[in-house]
Amino acid sequence: MGTPPAREGDDLRLFHTGLHDCGYWPDRQARDLVLDPRDPRLADWYALALGWGFRRSGDIVYRPHCGACRACTAVRIPVEGFSPSRAHRKCARRNADLVLRVCPAERTDEHLALYQRYLSARHAGGGMDGHGGPEFDQFLVGRWSRTRFLEFRTATPEHTLLAVAVTDMTADALSAVYTFYDPDHADRSLGTYAILRQLEWALQEGRGHLYLGYWIAGHAKMEYKRRFRPLEAFDGRQWLPFPDETP
Rank of each mutant, 00 (worst) to 15 (best):
50 L>C: 05
50 L>D: 06
52 W>C: 15
53 G>R: 11
53 G>A: 11
53 G>V: 02
54 F>C: 09
55 R>H: 13
56 R>T: 09
57 S>C: 10
58 G>T: 07
59 D>R: 10
59 D>G: 12
60 I>V: 15
63 R>W: 05
63 R>A: 11
63 R>E: 07
63 R>H: 05
65 H>P: 02
65 H>W: 08
67 G>E: 14
68 A>H: 15
68 A>W: 15
68 A>M: 14
69 C>I: 12
70 R>H: 14
72 C>N: 08
72 C>T: 10
72 C>E: 07
72 C>Q: 05
74 A>R: 03
76 R>C: 12
78 P>V: 02
79 V>D: 13
79 V>Y: 11
80 E>D: 15
80 E>Q: 15
81 G>C: 05
81 G>A: 11
81 G>N: 08
81 G>D: 13
83 S>N: 11
85 S>E: 09
86 R>E: 08
88 H>A: 06
89 R>C: 10
93 R>M: 08
94 R>K: 14
95 N>F: 00
95 N>M: 03
97 D>T: 09
99 V>C: 10
101 R>N: 09
103 C>F: 09
103 C>P: 14
104 P>V: 11
104 P>F: 07
104 P>I: 10
104 P>Q: 05
105 A>F: 08
106 E>Q: 13
107 R>W: 09
112 L>I: 06
114 L>K: 07
115 Y>I: 03
116 Q>F: 01
117 R>L: 08
119 L>W: 03
120 S>P: 01
122 R>Q: 01
122 R>F: 02
124 A>W: 06
124 A>V: 06
125 G>M: 02
126 G>C: 14
127 G>P: 06
128 M>P: 08
130 G>S: 04
130 G>V: 05
132 G>P: 07
134 P>C: 05
134 P>K: 01
136 F>E: 09
140 L>S: 04
140 L>H: 01
142 G>M: 00
143 R>F: 13
143 R>E: 13
144 W>M: 10
147 T>M: 08
147 T>N: 07
147 T>E: 09
149 F>V: 07
149 F>P: 07
150 L>P: 03
151 E>F: 06
151 E>T: 08
152 F>H: 02
153 R>D: 01
157 P>C: 04
157 P>Y: 02
157 P>G: 02
158 E>P: 07
158 E>R: 13
160 T>N: 04
160 T>P: 07
161 L>H: 03
161 L>T: 02
164 V>A: 00
164 V>C: 02
165 A>W: 04
168 D>R: 04
169 M>A: 15
170 T>K: 10
171 A>T: 12
171 A>W: 11
171 A>D: 11
172 D>Y: 12
173 A>Y: 07
173 A>P: 10
174 L>I: 12
174 L>C: 15
174 L>A: 14
174 L>T: 14
175 S>Y: 05
176 A>C: 13
176 A>M: 07
177 V>C: 12
178 Y>L: 08
180 F>A: 00
